[in-house]
Amino acid sequence: MSETSVRRRPGGRSARVRRALFDATIEVLHQHGASGLTVREVATRAGVNEASVYRRFGTRENLMIEALLSHSEQLLPIPDTGSLHGDLVAFATEISAYVTSPLGSALLRVLAAAGDDPAVDRVREQFARGRFTLAGDIVTRAIARGELPDTTDARLVLEMLIAPLHLRALLTREPIDDEAPRRLADAIVRGFGARPDTTGAQHG
């Protein structure tokens, strides 16, 4: 068996340790917030030596960023339905379900909380940048299919989709109805001059 095969073996010890650390990090963030998270507590919950956490991630902030990105990739995968409208509806539906769940709502408040900790600010900024980069594939694919102009601002498209959902979850606390994802997708498709989605009834 090659060294590469060993390194990439699914379910190996390294993967299990990372999963345990990420799960523990999310638990601590949920309970104590970003400012209250310590590497020692995460390591203890995960059953891992504290020094090994620093060897793997370098800093507390890196650990939080990687844990949040891994968590979001699991629960909020970037959809690929074959159309811009379908992708937007699917992604908004995922986000709606997540931000209204107990854990998702709590983590959203953690990330949105104002504070004086520059390290936490960096976590929030880098996490958001990472998610926008991944979700930008929705727009990149739409441009390649000719659904959007090649000058389309991917971040603006995603902000227009996500912001109303976060507004309701964080500020107004209004329920997000089942039709909200489709209404948002319809508005974005029209607003950016996208080619009409003739298969919209199949997505959602």
Rank of each mutant, 00 (worst) to 15 (best):
Pro118Lys: 04
Ala46Met: 01
Gly36Val: 10
Leu63Phe: 00
Val42Lys: 04
Arg183Asn: 11
Gly33Tyr: 07
Ser72Phe: 03
Ala154Cys: 10
His32Cys: 14
Ala97Phe: 08
Glu73Ser: 07
Ala97His: 03
Val6Leu: 15
Ala112Asp: 08
Arg40Met: 13
Ile162Asn: 14
Val189Lys: 01
His30Cys: 08
Ile176Thr: 02
His203Gln: 07
Leu37Gly: 03
Arg173Asp: 04
Ser105Phe: 02
Ser14His: 14
His30Thr: 06
Arg155Ile: 07
Phe132Asn: 09
Arg129Lys: 13
Leu108Phe: 02
His30Tyr: 02
Leu88Gln: 09
Met64Asn: 12
Glu179Phe: 00
Ile78Leu: 02
Phe22Arg: 13
Met1Arg: 10
Arg131Tyr: 14
Asp178Glu: 09
Asn62Gly: 10
Ser35Asn: 06
Phe91Ser: 11
Arg9Glu: 12
Arg145Ser: 04
Arg145Ala: 02
Val120Ala: 03
Leu161Lys: 10
Arg18Phe: 01
Ile65Ser: 05
Ala43Leu: 00
Arg9Ala: 14
His203Trp: 10
Ser14Arg: 15
Arg18His: 10
Leu63Ser: 07
Arg16Asp: 13
Val139Leu: 13
Arg129Phe: 07
Leu148Met: 03
Arg168Val: 05
Phe22Lys: 02
Ala20Pro: 01
Pro181Gln: 08
Thr59Arg: 14
Arg7Lys: 15
Ile78Gly: 06
Val139Phe: 04
Asp137Lys: 11
Thr44His: 15
Glu174Ser: 13
Leu108Ser: 02
Asp23Glu: 12
Ala51Lys: 11
Gly193Met: 04
Val42Arg: 07
Leu103Gly: 01
Ser83His: 01
Asp186His: 14
Phe192Pro: 06
Thr93His: 10
Asp80Phe: 08
Ile95Gln: 09
Leu75Gln: 12
Thr81Leu: 07
Thr172Cys: 10
Leu148Asn: 01
Leu75Ala: 04
Arg182Gln: 08
Glu147Arg: 00
Leu108Met: 03
Leu37Tyr: 02
His203Lys: 12
Tyr98His: 13
Gly146Phe: 01
Gly136Ser: 13
Val28Ile: 15
Ser101Met: 08
Ile143Phe: 04
Phe192Asp: 12
Ser52Cys: 03
Pro77Asn: 09
Arg124Met: 11
Leu165Trp: 05
Asp80Ala: 11
Pro118His: 05
Glu125Asp: 14
Arg155Tyr: 01
